[in-house]
Simulated scan of single mutants.
Amino acid sequence: MAREVLAGRMGLREAVRVGAYADALADRVGAARHEYERQSPESRAGEEAEARRYLAGLRSEIDAERAPSRR
């Protein structure tokens, strides 16, 4: 699925509507949810903070790419 989406042969929304892809994705989401539910509140908070830092970094990169160049 990822190869199809990344190659531009299929959109993400279209990919998750394909039975085999949807089943595989549902399995992975279920496993991830199970792992999340097993985590302590402290561990969840730590991972959330890490994810927020990661997303902030991505936002900074996007903002820098969008900013007019200073030549």
Rank of each mutant, 00 (worst) to 15 (best):
R38E: 08
V16R: 05
E4V: 09
A32I: 10
V5Q: 01
V5W: 01
L12F: 07
R33Y: 08
A15M: 09
R28E: 09
Y21S: 02
R28Q: 13
A24Q: 14
A22H: 05
E4R: 05
G11I: 03
R13F: 15
Q39T: 15
D27A: 06
H34W: 10
R3C: 05
G11Q: 08
Q39R: 13
V29Y: 04
D27N: 06
A26Y: 09
A32D: 07
R13L: 13
V18I: 08
A32Y: 09
Y21F: 11
E37G: 15
E14R: 08
A20S: 13
G30D: 05
G11K: 07
R17Y: 05
G30C: 12
R38M: 10
E35K: 13
V5A: 05
A15T: 03
R3D: 09
R38G: 12
D27H: 09
A26M: 07
G30R: 05
A32T: 14
M10H: 02
A15G: 02
D27E: 12
Y21N: 06
G19R: 07
A22Q: 06
L6P: 00
A26C: 08
D27P: 00
V29I: 13
R28V: 14
V16P: 03
E14L: 07
A24T: 11
E14W: 04
L6R: 04
L12S: 11
A20I: 12
R13M: 12
A32Q: 13
R28C: 08
R38L: 15
A31L: 12
R3Y: 03
R13G: 15
L12I: 15
R9Y: 10
G19A: 10
V16A: 02
A20F: 07
A24V: 13
R3T: 04
Y36W: 15
L12T: 14
E4D: 10
Q39C: 14
R13V: 14
